[in-house]
Design a protein around this nucleic acid. Structure first.
Lengths: 221, 221
DNA sequence: GATACCAGCTTGGTATCCCAAAATGGTACC
DNA sequence: GGTACCATTTTGGGATACCAAGCTGGTATC
């Protein structure tokens, strides 16, 4: 069996699921024994995860990337550029019926849906919306950005009302895309990303003490 | 000595310098013997170069990524999004004096400058311009995009006049940035990228037969 | 008691070995 | 002559052995 992809996938899930905390040190030997693989696939996995920004070299050795508030702010600016570009492209398409698929994703979440699912769909919304543009590079850039944000968004303390507002914004964006109104879609998407960033940064900042108590490294720069 | 970074660097230069042609098959064993390293660093190098888009898996095995005309067109759209976003950020900065450093790069090329240098500076202009924005993600995205375009741009048949026009456009962009005129800078940069794409695609398309004769794989999709 | 130094252990980097699968090439049969 | 099949080789993926650098803990000396 190909352990390589398995190690990579499982390790990514452990990191994204915060089973291994941000800032925690990793040794190749520990991963090796933890997943029953040898160092070759472990090494490949670490190299891949490094390019995704989930682990980083720590002098000699590896560390699960800390939550970086400055990075989160920069990613928001980055997202605004690429997601707005993608949604404008999509609005210019003749056939925009694929938005229905994205809308269906939103519909799949209701009051009984576990929080984990809301989290996943909230990210996939942006990823799939970018995919509609048909531009592979914009799509990948959005996907990678959301991956980097994933843990921080999971740590975010969100209430029902905030989720409801986010979903309403999502729907408004889709409506503008469906209507082919690029400016409206771009404007609403921009506002959504900026608002999302503010809520995220505020939440993390307020809960910083609690996060540190859980052993999670949260750095400001 | 750490062979790892050496293998990666040398292999990247061979690929970017077209010493190994686009579409050529690579075997880990060949790289191993060619650079006197063992397979572990060779694999690390291949994994890294894969994320840069310079090599790609070919079923079982590795291939130097072919020149992909569809990819070049998509990258142009991508570049427009990220470079325009970066230049707008830069225009919003209070201290934009760093543009002088970029302008000095342009000045370093004159009639006696070898073609290789024009090629390098032509890419570094865009990379350094993006760096001025202060956004690490926009910067990296531009750098990676230019890396992917590097070989195609090197294959491009460019005359003196075309280079002169490109340099004039570069200077006009810098002038707008220096003046803090975000709209003007964005407009000129957009036009430059689109024009650059058109010249590039046309040149490659016209010379496609010649490229194939040199053993270079050029695919349309 | 404090500090400097040394031994041993940990750890990432490298080299090498093994294996399974796929490509290759040659041969035999139709 | 062509095609199908089998042996051999090639090749990437995985496992393991080895090494050098750095950290740790303990001890001995001042």
């Amino acid at each position: 069996m190909s352990q390589m992809q398995n190690v990579e996938k499982q390790l990514r899930e452990m990191i994204l699921g915060l089973e291994i905390g941000p800032g925690e040190r990793l040794t190749e030997r520990w991963i090796e024994s933890r997943f029953g693989a040898s160092r070759t696939p472990v090494r490949a996995a670490l190299l891949r995860l490094e390019t995704e920004g989930l682990v980083c070299r720590d002098g000699r050795g590896w560390t699960v990337s800390p939550i970086n508030l400055a990075e989160i702010e920069q990613i928001a600016v980055y997202r605004e550029a690429i997601e707005v570009a993608a949604v404008k492209l999509t609005c210019a398409l003749e056939d925009r019926s694929a938005v229905d698929v994205v809308e269906a994703m939103l519909d799949s979440c209701d009051a009984g849906t576990p929080r984990e699912e809301w989290h996943r769909v909230g990210m996939d919304f942006h990823i799939e919306l970018a995919r509609l543009s048909g531009n592979e590079f914009l799509f990948r850039a959005v996907r990678d950005a959301m991956t980097r944000l994933s843990r921080a968004r999971w740590l975010e303390v969100r209430d029902e009302a905030a989720l409801g507002r986010a979903w309403a914004e999502h729907r408004a964006i889709l409506a503008a895309v469906r209507a082919g109104d690029a400016n409206e879609a771009a404007h609403r998407l921009s506002a959504h990303i900026v608002g999302s960033r503010d809520r995220l940064v505020t939440s993390l900042h307020n809960d910083r003490r609690g996060l540190r108590a859980r052993g999670f490294a949260v750095v400001a720069a």
